[in-house]
Structures are given as C-alpha cells and as structure tokens.
Design a protein around this nucleic acid. Structure first.
Lengths: 214, 214
DNA sequence: GTCTATATAATGATAGAC
DNA sequence: GTCTATCATTATATAGAC
C-alpha cells in the first residue's frame, strides 16, 4: 500500500536526503516502471495512479491523458539511458575496450531494455510523438558507437576495413536481440553468449589483440 | 466484412484449390495474425472472432479461452518458422553461405519476428505454457546455427578459433535486435546495417574469403 | 491541486437458444 | 457446433466537490 493524503509527510522511498517528489514526479516515475514491466498497452492509467499513490484527478491535472504521461516517461528514460551510455563510451581506453565496456555493462537482462521494449508496442510506434524519442535514442546510440569505432581506426587500434556504421548497428542489435533470447529462455545466458560472440569477432580486428574476453 | 452463417460457402481467401478452412483453423490463423501485429495483451478475443468471422461461442467451444487459443497460434507459428529456417540452413554451400542466406533472407522487417515479439509480452513470458514454444524455438535456432558453424570448422571453411555457440547466439541476436532498431526508426535500414556488419566480421574468418556481401 | 463519483466503451467469459 | 444475449470487471476519461 502507498500512503495517501498525508500532506508533506509523503516520500518516494528514495535515499535519505532526496527531496520529496512532487505528485508530477511520482507519476512519471511510476509510469516509467510500469511501462518497462508491462508495456504501453498493458499499462492502465489506474495502475499508474495506484502505484504512485495519487487519486484519479491528479493525473489529468498534470497530463492530458495516458499518452501524454507516457511521453514524459519515455523521454525521461531515454535521457537517463543516453547519459549513462555516453559515460561508458566516453571513458578512456581503446575503441575495443569502450565497446566491450558497453556490451559487458551490468544489466538487468531479464527485464530487457525499457526503450527497446516500446518498439514492440503498436500504439507507441504508430504515434509519431511517442516513437520520436525511441528513434532519437537508437539513432544516437548507433552514431556514438560508430564514432568510437572510427576513432579507433584513426588511432590504428582497429582494422581500417571495418565499416563503423554497420558494425555499430551490429553492436546495438546484439544487445537488443540478446534481451529477446534471454527472455525467451528466462535465463541471461543467451544474452551473454551473444555479447561474447560479437566481442570475439571484433577482437580479431583490434591491434594489439585485447585479452580474451572474461 | 466477413461472411457469416453461409454454411459450406465460407472460404478463407487463400489460393484456389485450398480446401475451405474449418472454424477452428480460421480462429488459429486470425489469432496468429493479430498476435503478430498487436501482441498478446493487445489482442482481444473479440478482435480475433471478428477477424475470423465467427460468433462469440465458437471460440469457447474449440478453445478453453484466450490463452489456449494463443498457445495453439504460437505453436503453429513457431513450427512454420522452424521449417522455413531449417530449409535455408540445410541448403548446400559453405557455412558462411548458409548463415548469410539466413541473415539476408527476405523479411518483413518492420513487422518484426512473430515469435520474438511474444518475449516482450509479460503475460506470455510469465505463463510457462506460453513461453515454452518461444524457448524451444530460439534454443533450436541457436543450436542449428551452431551446428552449421561447427560443420564449417570441420570442413576447414571457418577459423577453428570461433566459438560456434556464442557466434550462433550473436547471429540470432542481430536478427532480433535488428527488428527493434528498424521499428524504432520506422525504416529497415538499421536492420540491414546490423546484418551486414556481422557478416563482414564473420567473413574475415572464412576461408576462402567470400565475396563482399551485397 | 487533489480528491471522489460517475460515464462510456471494451474485455474476457458464461448461459442457453437453435 | 454455432449463434446471440448477458455479465462482472477493467480501461480511459470527465465532472465537480473540497
């Protein structure tokens, strides 16, 4: 159960020192969690309200409706993902190291990607406003990985014959597809196998050869 | 509109010479199409009935309910996919050729994979009976691709250093992830890029080197 | 701004006529 | 076997009190 109507005593359960979330913030946070878990079609406004612990009217005061709240939630999730990913890809090291760090990053594999998840939701993909942040996120991701690979080529760390854009698409696809395989198996193993398979292929193009992947 | 109550004159619209489908068959076919397009949560029994052109009661006569019909539909789709895929992977040619044929196979990229799609549906993955055919399908796919790769190694067509299982997982993941990237972009290009990126990496391990991918 | 009450349609399933 | 009628529940949104 969530507390209700308790004035300033409400809290979102985050770390001590965090300022209490506004109703609007709590709605977005709840929407993000439920969209990740259940998808757009499977997430009802009522479920979001109950998860956030607010009444029916509050949502329609802050947002025009379900899709408007979902848009805010998706934008926020994409933003966070971009920030976290850029940090990994911008770290020091060879191009191989940085791509490997991205691929081997700790993930909640069985939960899948909260952004990739949305691409399987008809109502999301068909709404240009809802699809836009997904498109922007994956477009950015492929470009950023391609940059890293191209930089590695300029530095002589990677074979010049590689197509940075195509290889970057493969890297992004292996992650997204790895989630699919893992969820089908209810086991992260296929995700890890897919990642290591790609890294092994990539390693043969790196000079000097990186140590065998863990 | 679909015809109703027309006795033996009903037809499922397939090629001339095809025997008219039974009500049960039409329900399964309709369920397969709608599950592919809208997912499990997004597909209502009513929508299936209307698409099949039968009344409410018929479905509950032939199937125990929504999940039971979905199970029949998913099983059939997985069966068909397995047959079609095995045909490609069992064709003559080098291991590289056969994996390339699988990756470059004509696909309705923006529609995605009807089996992979189901792994993003909470209600499917949480039901052991519904998840089982997904698990079996992808497990078979990875094993079959790994077999092809291992055979290529024995024949001396592929570098012995490759891990067949991991590489096979990468191949399957690139396809599934390619769909995700393509749907986000509403454009098959990222799918094609991901596939060609992986093929280029794989090509460097093939002897003699295959011609540059189309 | 937040709440409860209400409205309208859709969902998933059952009952029982034919 | 197939159909229509019905039902309890949920989804999405609005109205209006506080």
């Amino acid at each position: 159960m969530y507390s209700r109507g308790m004035g300033n005593h409400q809290n979102d359960g985050t770390a001590i020192g965090t300022p209490p979330s506004s109703t609007q913030e709590r709605l977005v946070t709840s929407a993000r969690e439920l969209l990740w878990e259940r998808g757009y079609v499977g997430t009802s406004p009522k479920a979001i309200l109950q998860h956030a612990g607010v009444g029916q009217g509050s949502m329609y005061h802050h947002f025009a409706g379900k899709s408007d709240l979902a848009l805010a939630a998706i934008r926020r999730t994409a933003e966070d993902m971009r920030t976290a990913t850029d940090e990994i890809l911008s770290a020091p090291g060879t191009a191989y190291d940085r791509v490997a760090a991205y691929l081997l990053r700790e993930r909640e594999v069985l939960r899948g990607c909260p952004i990739g998840r949305m691409t399987q939701d008809r109502d999301v993909v068909q709404d240009p406003a809802l699809r836009a942040p997904l498109d922007a996120m994956f477009d950015w991701l492929r470009r950023r990985i391609a940059e890293v690979l191209a930089e590695g080529q300029r530095r002589g760390e990677l074979a010049a014959g590689l197509d940075p854009a195509a290889t970057a698409a493969s890297v992004a696809a292996v992650v997204q597809g790895g989630y699919v395989l893992a969820r089908a198996a209810e086991d992260p193993a296929p995700f890890d196998a897919a990642v290591h398979g790609l890294l092994a292929l990539l390693a043969t193009h790196a000079t000097p050869p990186p140590p065998v992947a863990p």
